[in-house]
């Protein structure tokens, strides 16, 4: 049963990409930003949502992190690939987690797509540059008072996301993260009995 579902699901994917004849990345990026119109979705039984994409990225990221750790048990030439893999999949995991939290039903992640993509590029780029750039010595010039690799890492992975994300969160909060209507809808869903699940009062 499970295998049949996997096959059917895979078949749907294949069918969609054959029928759609549209570059996958373009379609999925537009989904992520919530710009995909319903009449643009290929006519198959399963269509991807931004949440699906985030989940896939999260699962792929976790699998990648697992592989990076496994590489440490392998011969040296394979073990050297571990940090490179980690440098890519770990930011992917973090950004996928943020997207999963930010995504709104039927609205993708709207204005957050750009900042999240930028943060992924900054963090992954920072890690990759730190791995790729040459080692420092006593004559290395300083950037902002630090050796170049350290400066790139601290600015790209630390400072810019640190300044950017909280501001983006605040600026998009009223329109996209939690509106008064959202709050009213949640309060309307409140059950008459608000006791914690499974609780039954008993004297002690």
């Amino acid at each position: 049963m499970g295998c049949a579902r996997v096959l059917a699901y895979t078949g749907n994917w294949a069918a969609r990409h054959r029928l759609g004849r549209r570059p996958l990345i373009k379609y999925e990026l537009s989904m992520l930003a919530g710009r995909q119109q319903s009449n643009e979705v290929p006519a198959v039984s399963h269509t991807l949502t931004a949440r699906d994409l985030a989940l896939r990225a999260l699962i792929a990221g976790m699998a990648g992190i697992a592989m990076a750790y496994v590489s440490a048990f392998l011969p040296l030439w394979l073990a050297r690939l571990g940090p490179w893999l980690m440098a890519i999949v770990m930011p992917l995991t973090m950004c996928a987690m943020m997207i999963l939290g930010a995504v709104r039903a039927g609205r993708g992640i709207g204005p957050l797509a750009g900042p999240f993509a930028l943060v992924f590029l900054l963090i992954a780029g920072g890690f990759v540059l730190a791995l790729a750039l040459p080692t420092e010595n006593a004559n290395t010039p300083l950037w902002f008072g630090l050796p170049p690799r350290a400066a790139v890492l601290l600015c790209g992975v630390g400072l810019v996301p640190l300044l950017l994300l909280p501001v983006v969160y605040a600026l998009t909060f009223d329109l996209f993260i939690l509106t008064d209507e959202d709050l009213a809808r949640v309060r309307a869903a409140r059950l008459p009995d608000t006791k914690p699940t499974g609780a039954r009062a008993r004297s002690v």
């Binding site: 973090m94 943020m98 963090i123 994300l165």
Partner: peptide
């Protein structure tokens, strides 16, 4: 270093 992300990530997630 993750503190650059974790507070915002915690808020969203």
């Amino acid at each position: 270093l993750p503190a650059a992300l974790t507070n915002s990530m915690g808020a969203w997630v």
